[in-house]
Design a protein around this nucleic acid. Structure first.
Lengths: 337, 337
DNA sequence: CATGGTTGCTAAAGCGCTTTAGTCGTGGAA
DNA sequence: TTCCACGACTAAAGCGCTTTAGCAACCATG
């Protein structure tokens, strides 16, 4: 049998289509007795709402969108993304909302997607991440009034609701820890400078340098790949005097860096301390296990989901993500004399 | 201005709505001149199709669905899933098809989702993976005639089109390699026995045992977690005589196993050879780097995407995924005398 | 010159649902 | 008793698009 429509239900219940719609949506207009009867019939006919029909008549799409302009290949490598998606999904599906995932070529295509989605009433809102300097996506979303939540923006000041991470405090936390151990020559293998979060971390390190008596605290930007992580590490370790500690902006780069250190005959943490700005299985399972700034990315995803749902209801509000925790493992210690 | 509809375009072009629809869809019924004019106007008005309206009138949804009943938390840990999704997405978006990702509680919820999607014309097809013995999803999909592609099923014999992986040959490849090195006591830390692929690997090892003079080649099933991987490894290494090689069904477990070996003072590969049945950054970056059966999961995703698109067009056909390649790294060697 | 087949287009129904305007019958207030 | 308000429900329009049936104009054919 073809799928039942509310028309079928109406016929069976001996009422009008409108009445069925009221009953099914818990709206006034039908008596409790009729409502119960309709619900009963709907259940027994195995009726499901037709989402397209709903969307057509202007209802919510019960779907939020996530589009990424990162190269598709790298998404699988970064545990971060997968964790985030899982958390998001979990936070949304509890409310019967779906997650639409799309990977596009570049930011222009991303903006174009928002435009399409907006006009097709395809999603109720979108999640933005990897915010850049002067991001065209923000302008587009403000203009089109498509509800959006930014992950990792500049804080509560922004125009769009924001789940923001205090990168500055996080970096200070790491540097203070290393300084307390006695490290003075701290290097930073950063991510790509086009991202705000990278910039904030670099800035934080620079600012703390004088205060903490650091000598030549430098940040080097990379494209987040393990290749560049290794490459930069090689250059850093060739310097004289060598840095005694290196902070990596991602776990993948940290692991690559550890590889280089071992390959160069250095002992970690005796000759070199290593801290990763992101935690994962990878960091946990290395030998030595890496000291890392650990945040619960899955929970972060759930938080974004909650914020998103609120934004869809028009109650947009920025929230601060929990401060990541510094998990000290085996890759950090006192600097060699 | 509100979003333009084909009605607006029709008004502007001075033709009927039907004519516009024909023009926009490249169908016969309008002259080339009119078509060009309509296309021009549509472009300049910034028209986009309204997907819900299309879906309502029975067109394709240009969307394929992927639902996973794996616990959401573990999806982020497994590089496999993220890679697969990326590849799928890449393969689909080239054809303007979207990917709808959903994570649900259990298989029952998964079946329910298919039912809903089917009746709402929400997706054109679905991708199935982690096939189990007597899988209720297969029955549901056959019944409902929702196009589906199975990843990692039993081969070309199945009723649903299949992208199948020759697990048996893969396992034989590993075991033959180890046997050639001189290993006789080979253990296998397997995944969960409810999955067909796990069963096939176990079977392959058992079958090859007599042929290759293996002694006590055993498989132990786990839940794929690093905890159980470590736990089982501990038990295996406590045996006397110890196995000289262990094959792990996933990279995460292999890494956990390596940790246990080191913790027990064994040298890899001298005292113990380790092979992972799946490759990833994780395996590449360990010290020693793990010998692994490497497949291009991203490409696998693309292959599934292509097969899916064909299935949607009614040209369902099973294909065999490329045989994974054994990448020998530092974790395997001659067994100690 | 009548016939038939194209071509290029229009009108209108229909997809499943929401929503508004309206109808009908009831009970309570005046 | 009359009138009104209200609750329960129906009828119908409309969301944006596809698709079928139909129509008028034109050409070629015999």
């Amino acid at each position: 049998m073809a799928r039942p429509t509310i028309g079928d239900i109406a016929a069976r219940a001996g009422v009008s289509i409108g009445a069925v719609s009221f009953a099914l949506n818990g709206r006034a207009g039908v008596s409790e007795a009729t409502r119960a009867r309709i619900l009963e019939i709907a259940e027994q006919m195995g009726w499901h709402p037709h989402s397209a029909a709903k969307a057509l008549s202007g209802a919510k799409a019960d779907m939020i969108g996530l589009v990424s302009a990162r190269p598709a290949r790298t998404l699988g490598v970064e545990p971060f993304f997968a964790q985030l998606v899982s958390g998001l999904q979990a936070g949304l599906s509890g409310q019967g909302v779906g997650l639409q995932l799309l990977i596009v070529e570049d930011i222009a295509a991303e903006v174009e997607t928002y435009r399409k989605w907006r006009s097709a009433n395809h999603v109720d809102g979108v999640v933005l991440f990897d915010l850049r300097a002067d991001d065209p996506r923000v302008a587009e979303l403000e203009r089109s009034r498509l509800p959006a939540v930014v992950l990792g923006g500049a804080g509560p000041l922004e125009s769009l609701p924001n789940v923001w991470v205090d990168d500055r405090a996080a970096m200070l936390r790491i540097v203070e820890y290393l300084a307390a151990l006695g490290h003075q020559r701290i290097a930073h293998v950063a991510g790509s400078p086009e991202f705000w979060h990278t910039r904030r971390r670099i800035e934080a390190l620079r600012d703390s340098a004088s205060e903490l008596d650091l000598v030549g605290a430098t940040s080097t930007t990379t494209d987040f790949s393990d290749e560049q992580g290794a490459e930069v590490t090689r250059r850093l370790l060739a310097r004289r005097p060598r840095p005694t500690a290196i902070v990596y902006d991602s776990d993948v780069m940290a692991v690559a860096g550890l590889g280089v250190a071992i390959e160069m005959g250095l002992s970690v943490p005796h000759d070199l301390s290593i801290v990763a700005f992101d935690d994962s299985v990878l960091a946990r399972m290395m030998h030595p296990a890496l000291t890392a700034l650990s945040r619960d990315t899955f929970a972060l995803g759930e938080l974004v989901a909650r914020t998103m749902l609120r934004a869809v209801d028009g109650a947009a509000e920025s929230v601060q993500a929990p401060m990541p925790e510094l998990v000290v493992r085996e890759s950090t210690g006192l600097p060699a004399k």
